[in-house]
Design a binder for these strands. Structure first.
Length: 658
DNA sequence: CCCGGTATAAACAGCA
DNA sequence: GTGCTGTTTATACCGG
């Protein structure tokens, strides 16, 4: 089985993109069908109406902008010049989402409950698809199909909504990264809101939807507005090219953003939008939202003064900015993961019919998702913690397009097509990977995307006395991973090989015989060797720059956001940290610690360098509802997700990703 | 293309 | 002799 893994990996990885594309096409077609049927009744779809309205508003805003000297939009000519740029940005920001959108389906928490693993849903999808193609059905079946269709639409609508949220999040991220993110209040409620699906909504409803999504900030701000436009346009009229094309011209916030979030532009915005004193991403609710600042500014002007004086271009600001960049990166990674999950879900739903897989095991369904999630990228599957709670996010990384794509374990005799570990280098640490997927790996015959060394270390760390005999390590492997319940000779040999090979594994003679322990220093040494980039700056930031608590809170909040999917999953499965399956947490040093079901770390795992802040659940000081789209999530976050905090911090310390 | 890390396979030795 | 444990070597893949 191992023999073919290499070639399998190659072929799979090479196929992943294409496979995804084809899937996308299929799904796209499916969504088209669904939408076309819905829009067939009206000449102008609600979406189009809304789009037109938004277009008009945008045009008006553009006019205002064009009248502003030095606005970067001095002339239509300039405008044209910028268009490509804007489009480019837009593409960069939305491409993935668009990709997902093209599926006509969005990840929804609801899916976690019903789950993509729902055979009925799957059947519905299939039936719908066939219906779209004009496949004849018996009357009775048609009725049934109709009901199924409705159910399917509901699910898809929910997913679509989720998609919107995702897209918006990404958009916000981009904006934030560019320093011009006017984060409207109420955004935080986004993830949890039970908004009505775009499809079939009236223009008013859509407007309201967008308002809700943007926290009622809306059309005042070009950026947000455009964002909204993109959102609406993309999600609901991905097939109505005419409408979509109209959306491109607008001079979006991108233009402004590209011009930096200078005081000038901010002032411009302020003048543009009377009551938009808070149009600056760093200013909201009369408070400077610079990380760790929170200075109160009576008005926007004062804020600008404050900004220029207190947050001028210096080492500190630069460093803080750098940290913020990392936060954004984390968020983007998470977004990427979410996107992958969605794609995996869609892939699963669509592949399912063509793959008569009579596996009654819910896990298999999950497995399919997991494996297919690898399509475009990598990262280990973040699967449901329990077969009954198919929620955990798939954690693919767009940076790792080499991920082998395995449609499903059932299809791949050797689920271990992945010859190389993924998460080690590009994805989340083992802890965060395995923790949420604990049950999955335990039951699904999927090769864990971790190196043997990582797994061995985890096994040892997982023990009570931090030492295991070879046999116990074997047991841990088989106990923890279904994948290692076969081909014992192969992986056992590999385990032994790794134990001997890596200096980080130390053999200690015991009364009972020989046991293996982990030389953490050596292990970290190994890890650090793989680290790319200098962590020094970030590492020293909190102390040297006085970032302090606020920064930590910010990072944690961001990380909490990063764990949104996990959170969502967790939220469904557990109202609190308790009840979670054993989760492994990783601290700054990359050491893992297992949490018992009560969220308490097992004795002996507390790393010496453990930072208190890691475990401290702080309310993000600098993150109010305005700038934290997922603040609700953050607030609702629980200890299980804190691991992500640590991951981030760990990431900052460059000690995490192998 | 080179190099390092990793996975896999296998040979080999020591030991119970 | 057999099986387990541990070491070492060889080969191949992959990503930087």
């Amino acid at each position: 089985m191992m023999q073919e893994s290499a070639t399998e990996t190659i072929s799979n990885s090479s196929m992943s993109q294409n496979g995804m594309s084809s899937l996308s096409n299929q799904l796209d077609a499916g969504s088209r069908d669904g939408r076309s049927s819905g829009d067939a009744g009206s000449e102008v779809s609600p979406v189009e109406l809304l789009h037109l309205q938004q277009q008009q508003a945008l045009q008006a805003a553009r006019q205002l902008l064009l009248q502003q000297p030095g606005s970067g939009l001095k002339s239509p000519k300039n405008n044209d010049k910028q268009r490509p740029l804007q489009v480019s940005n837009s593409r960069a920001a939305h491409k993935p989402l668009h990709q997902v959108f093209s599926f006509g389906c969005v990840y929804v928490r609801g899916c976690k409950q019903t789950g993509p693993a729902s055979p009925s849903l799957f059947f519905v999808v299939e039936g719908h698809s066939e219906s779209g193609s004009g496949a004849p059905f018996p009357p009775r079946f048609q009725q049934q199909q109709h009901q199924q269709l409705a159910a399917q639409q509901l699910v898809f609508q929910q997913q679509l909504l989720q998609m919107q949220q995702l897209q918006q999040q990404q958009h916000l991220l981009n904006m934030q990264r560019q320093g011009l993110l006017p984060l409207p209040p109420g955004q935080a409620a986004l993830p949890g809101q039970t908004l009505q699906p775009p499809a079939g909504l009236s223009p008013a409803e859509l407007q309201q939807l967008w308002k809700d999504v943007t926290g009622n900030h809306n059309m005042e701000d070009n950026g947000m507005k455009h964002s909204g436009l993109d959102l609406t346009t993309t999600n609901s009229s991905s097939t109505t090219s005419s409408t979509t094309s109209k959306a491109s011209p607008p001079i979006s916030h991108h233009s402004i953003s590209n011009g930096q979030s200078s005081a000038l532009s901010a002032r411009r915005e302020s003048s543009l939008h009377e009551e938009t004193g808070a149009s600056h991403s760093l200013y909201g609710h009369g408070v400077c939202k610079w990380p760790g600042c929170e200075s109160i500014c009576e008005d926007f002007g004062q804020f600008l003064k404050h900004l220029n004086s207190e947050h001028a271009l210096d080492d500190r600001s630069t460093a803080q900015c750098r940290v913020q960049m990392q936060v954004v990166q984390q968020l983007e990674i998470q977004l990427s993961k979410e996107r992958e999950r969605l794609q995996a879900m869609m892939a699963h739903l669509h592949m399912r019919p063509s793959e008569p897989k009579p596996s009654p095991k819910p896990l298999n369904l999950v497995s399919s998702v997991t494996m297919s999630k690898n399509l475009p990228s990598i990262s280990p599957p973040n699967l449901p913690q329990t077969p009954t709670t198919p929620t955990a996010p798939i954690t693919p990384h767009s940076q790792m397009p080499q991920v082998p794509s395995v449609l499903s374990p059932a299809n791949v005799p050797s689920a271990g097509a992945m010859r190389r570990r993924h998460s080690d280098k590009y994805s989340m640490p083992l802890s965060s990977e395995i923790a949420p997927n604990y049950e999955f790996y335990k039951n699904a015959d999927v090769r864990p995307p971790f190196t043997y060394a990582t797994l061995i270390r985890q096994a040892i760390m997982d023990s009570n006395d931090m030492q295991l005999t070879l046999n116990e390590i074997y047991s841990w492997f088989t106990r923890t991973f279904a994948y290692f319940r076969r081909n014992a000779a192969t992986w056992k040999n590999a385990v032994r090989h790794n134990l001997s090979l890596h200096k980080c594994f130390v053999r200690v003679e015991n009364v009972k015989g020989a046991v293996w322990t982990v030389d953490e220093i050596e292990y970290q040494k190994r890890r650090s060797q793989k680290i790319t980039g200098s962590p020094s700056l970030v590492k020293n930031l909190p102390s040297s720059l006085g970032y302090g608590t606020a920064l930590n809170a910010s990072l944690q909040a961001a990380l909490a956001e990063t764990s949104l999917p996990l959170l969502g999953a967790t939220g469904l499965m557990n109202s609190s940290a308790s009840g979670l399956p054993p989760s492994i947490h990783e601290d700054f040093n990359g050491t893992l610690e297992y949490l018992d079901t009560n969220g308490h770390s097992s004795p002996g795992y507390s790393p010496p360098t453990h930072l208190p802040s890691i475990h401290v659940k702080e309310e993000p000081l600098n993150m109010d509802d305005d700038d934290c789209p997922m603040s609700l999530v953050t607030t609702a976050n629980h200890s299980p997700e804190l691991e992500n905090d640590r991951e981030l911090e760990e990431g900052n310390l460059s000690e995490d990703l192998e």
